[in-house]
């Protein structure tokens, strides 16, 4: 079986597959000062300014707690049709990220546990399935 194509492979990688979909590891980074960030970069640490070898890849689990959600009713960009829901998630590993709620997720409220998964989103021109990160209520 061919590996799945990922929409943003620089930001996440595929974990194991189960009945809820494909688990995901987020490609974060860690500075030698202890600061954990997402996504990985080597320009320099926002907390202490160290750069280069001081910053190393650090995989983050896509488990976290919902801080906020917003259903977007109006969006000018034709490549992203409203409605869709944006979630703000405090990852258990530290960073706070903002991304999309899975279309099939029940409504979410702040404080709930949520999990990121890779879900099929678009078909590329060659017909292969492209996976992207979406959050939903933790099972």
């Amino acid at each position: 079986m061919q590996p799945n194509k990922l929409l943003k492979p620089s930001l996440y990688s595929e974990g194991s597959s189960n009945r809820d979909g494909t688990t995901v590891r987020l490609k974060g980074g860690r500075c030698r000062c202890g600061y954990v960030f997402f996504p990985m970069q080597t320009y320099g640490c926002e907390r202490c300014g160290s750069y280069g070898d001081a910053l190393t890849p650090y995989e983050l689990s896509a488990e976290g707690t919902l801080l906020a959600e917003a259903s977007v009713h109006l969006h000018a960009d034709k490549n992203r049709l409203a409605p869709f829901t944006i979630v703000k998630v405090a990852l258990d590993d530290g960073p706070v990220i903002r991304t999309l709620l899975a279309d099939d997720s029940p409504p979410v409220t702040p404080g709930q546990r949520v999990t990121g998964r890779l879900v099929p989103t678009t078909q590329s021109e060659s017909g292969e399935t492209v996976l992207d990160l979406r959050f939903s209520i933790a099972s």
Partner: peptide, 9 residues
């Protein structure tokens, strides 16, 4: 630096 969904926010 990439981002998850900033085009949607």
């Amino acid at each position: 630096i990439g981002n998850l969904a900033e085009d949607a926010i």
